[in-house]
């Protein structure tokens, strides 16, 4: 069996969607805000940069909550 790893974008998409999945119980607006807060608090800059780049490229596979959260995610310098 050969090793097949997720791409960085696939990993970030999965992680972001999971976060949004938890907060979705709080309703879309609050979920988007909490998702952004969580990512800002726990994601290193290159991860945030990667996610925002994926959003900018269309955000395929990202949940609507993540897409709504993107504007509140701190853009790394």
């Amino acid at each position: 069996m050969t090793a097949a790893f997720e791409t960085e974008t696939e990993t970030l998409t999965r992680m972001a969607n999971q976060i949004a999945g938890f907060f979705s119980a709080y309703g879309e607006a609050e979920a988007a805000a909490e998702t952004a807060t969580h990512i800002n608090a726990y994601w290193e800059s290159r991860m945030r940069r990667g996610l925002l780049a994926h959003v900018a490229a269309g955000g395929v596979g990202l949940s609507p909550i993540v897409l709504a959260a993107a504007v509140k995610i701190n853009r790394p310098a």
């Binding site: 999965r14 992680m15 976060i19 999945g21 938890f22 726990y42």
Partner: peptide, 8 residues
């Protein structure tokens, strides 16, 4: 590689 949503 699947992991916890909040903490990995």
């Amino acid at each position: 590689d699947y992991s916890d949503w909040a903490t990995n």
